[in-house]
Design a binder for these strands. Structure first.
Length: 606
RNA sequence: CGGGGCGUAGCGCAGUCUGGUAGCGCACCUGGUUCGGGACCAGGGGGUCGGAGGUUCGAAUCCUCUCGCCCCGACCA
């Protein structure tokens, strides 16, 4: 039996000043973790119990679709040279040398190791598909570790890799992971959304991130009641129709706009709304990952010009996906060369667009929201002048028309037409169709049914173990702060209270004996604890000789979802059950408590 | 890497400007009272003031260098 008096649970009344976000403060105060360095944490017994529970759920579900490995964290340089990621990962990977001077790295992820096993061992399509996973420590030399366990340099990740004979097989493996992830996160009690994500620099055809809304998060996502959900880098929306200006003629007309450069200035000067304007943004794209052919045709760098509605914001990731490289703003010299005009008066007319993205010339991208619009106001590429009556298609032709803008809160989702909620979120899982990147670069080949050598197609799938714990605390603390705000009698400051879902809490139940010097109370506590334990419940008995107030506070701090108070009411054969998630207290007869707890826990299981 | 902030007892802080015996609250130890919402009284232990160098009769305090941590940005499967 777990007795608090014998355990190491160093709770703190005050959190160290370093801690900023709720989960960080609470994890420290509850004695779950201690910091060793920037982005490096020790997991104390309570934290370890909780993480072990998460891992057990992940393992149980993953074993249904795959097989567990344990792979080295220490990897030789040569392996990563093969995939091109020794250099590709840059400073984000920890590098070290052994005594002989051989170079090694601490693996950030395990595509290379898994693929090397696959290429050495897999020979035939008959051996496919394979789903291989592991749960282990990853190392990333983050430029800026932050927010407690949310962004760290050493953390636990479940990562899985699938190998299939063809794209249809990959689709199946991907779907299996999607379903498994939903089960895992539900069992962990997470309130999550799966969003379409940008595939990033890794390429590939499909990618979804599993997100939990929380202000502590670093990603922006959009979702709606209809079930639509997407990363801001992918999100699109239906726009309310806007009325175009009444034209003053059939062709663009110069307007003198001395000293008016910004959208707002021009808008108020010409007495028009900002959505009547065409905004011009100029970038240079550098093609670090482009193939040789691409560089040959369009050059190592290239001018990229984006046109957006005046009141819209550019999403650089969307634009970068079209431009196939990294973007940076043009310098004034580059602007002068491209437009023959100063910033503030840039516009589409007279700009020579490349006829095709793969052809040389300026890559001109018109945001889809401007398609079909008429009589816009745009820069004239002439100092102190703008143009009115500018109509895309008629007056100028872009290289491509594409969605390159950020959506806004409240716009309607493209599927169900429900208002979109925009918010910060933390990523707890990611599933990703990798394609052939590693099979190709590392030479994995199998024979297909026709005896022909083919590359297996891969997928990779990650779950951040610590992030599940962190997100659960953030969510609960936020919900609690809201409850507290509604109940003005609560003296707890916002975000100081939380409770974990029973499935991932270090204990499911805590029994608080209000006074251990009263033999009756102590005996009753021992009895209930023993009964619960016999019934398979994970119970902690607070048998410390402390004042009741201290024990209540501590019980709340460690986030255990159910608390049984044994005190005065025992004389009437009653104990109190506090449900921390709903903040309700119920008196129950002593002899029914075990069965009642069991039914509660069963009901909370998914 | 750019900007900002902070390093004084386990935690939270004062003292630094204006150099002169290193302090307070919580925690911890001992004794007593108390005992359903972070008790009270009395006594006690605990600090190379992040580190190095310098100025000075004398440095937590002034100067130089350095290390670490946090926040914003950049970055980021």
């Amino acid at each position: 039996m777990q007795r608090w008096s014998k355990l190491f649970i160093p709770t703190l009344r005050e959190a160290p000043t370093d801690a900023e976000v709720a989960s960080h403060k609470l994890l420290l105060r509850a004695g779950y973790i201690r910091q060793l360095g920037a982005g490096i944490y020790s997991y104390l017994p309570l934290g370890q119990r909780s993480l072990n529970k998460i891992i057990a759920i992940v393992r149980q579900e993953m074993d249904k679709i795959g097989q567990e490995f344990f792979l080295p964290a220490l990897n030789p340089r040569e392996l990563w040279e093969e995939s091109g990621r020794w250099a590709g990962m840059g400073q984000n990977m920890f590098h070290l040398k052994d005594r002989k001077g051989a170079e090694l790295c601490l693996a950030m992820t395990h595509e290379e190791v898994m693929t090397s096993i696959a290429r050495n061992e897999l020979r035939s399509y008959k051996q496919l598909p394979q789903i291989w996973y592991q749960i282990q420590t990853k190392f990333r030399d983050e430029p800026r570790p932050r927010s407690g366990l949310l962004r760290v340099r050493q953390f636990t990740m479940k990562d899985a890799y699938s190998f299939d004979i063809d794209a249809a097989g990959l689709d199946e493996s991907y779907k299996k992971h999607y379903d498994t992830y939903c089960r895992i996160f539900k069992r962990c009690g997470m309130d999550f959304v799966a969003v379409d994500a940008d595939s990033g620099a890794m390429g590939g055809s499909g990618s979804q991130e599993f997100m939990v809304y929380t202000d502590a998060g670093e990603d922006l996502i959009a979702s709606s009641a209809s079930g639509y959900a997407a990363n801001l880098e992918k999100a699109t929306s239906k726009l309310a129709p806007v009325e175009d200006l009444i034209p003053t003629g059939d062709t663009p007309e110069l307007v003198h706009t001395p000293g008016f450069r910004t959208i707002d200035e021009v808008g108020s000067f010409l007495q028009t709304k900002s959505h009547h304007q065409l905004k011009t943004m100029a970038y240079i794209v550098e093609h670090p990952e482009a193939d040789a052919k691409q560089i040959k045709t369009v050059g190592k760098t290239r001018a990229v010009v984006a046109f957006l509605r005046g009141d819209h914001q550019l999403n650089e990731t969307k634009l970068a996906a079209i431009a196939l490289g990294e973007l940076r703003p043009m310098t004034p010299e580059e602007i002068a060369e491209t437009f023959k005009a100063p910033a503030g008066y840039l516009g589409p007319i007279g700009l020579e667009a490349a006829p095709h993205p793969r052809k040389p010339g300026v890559l001109v991208v018109l945001d889809a929201a401007l398609e079909g619009r008429k009589n816009l106001i745009a820069g004239a590429n002439k100092e102190e002048y703008h143009l009115r009556n500018v109509t895309p298609g008629r007056d100028f032709k872009p290289t491509v028309i594409a969605d390159i803008r950020n959506i806004n809160e409240g716009e309607l989702d493209p599927i169900g037409g429900e208002p979109l909620r925009l918010g910060k979120a933390v990523e707890i899982g990611h599933i990703f169709k990798l394609g052939y990147k590693y099979s190709e670069s590392m030479g994995a080949r199998v024979l297909d049914a026709n005896g022909k050598e083919v590359m297996p197609i891969m997928g990779c799938y990650g779950i951040g173990i610590e992030r599940i714990l962190t997100a659960a605390i953030e969510s609960s603390a936020a919900a609690n702060a809201q409850l507290s705000a509604e109940d003005l009698n609560t003296k707890q400051p916002a975000g100081e209270q939380y409770a974990l879902p029973a499935a991932i809490a270090p204990f499911e139940v805590i029994i608080t004996i209000t006074n251990v010097r009263e033999a009756d109370l102590l005996a009753a506590g021992e009895k209930i604890a023993a009964d619960l334990e016999a019934a398979g419940v994970d119970v902690l008995l607070d048998d410390r000789d402390e004042r009741a107030g201290v024990k209540f506070k501590d019980a709340e701090l460690i986030g255990v979802p159910y608390r049984i108070n044994i005190g005065k009411k025992l004389a009437e054969g009653q104990v109190e059950l506090v449900d921390r998630l709903t903040q309700t207290t119920t008196d129950l007869p002593l002899d029914t408590i075990t069965a009642y707890i069991q039914s509660l826990l069963n009901a909370s299981k998914v």
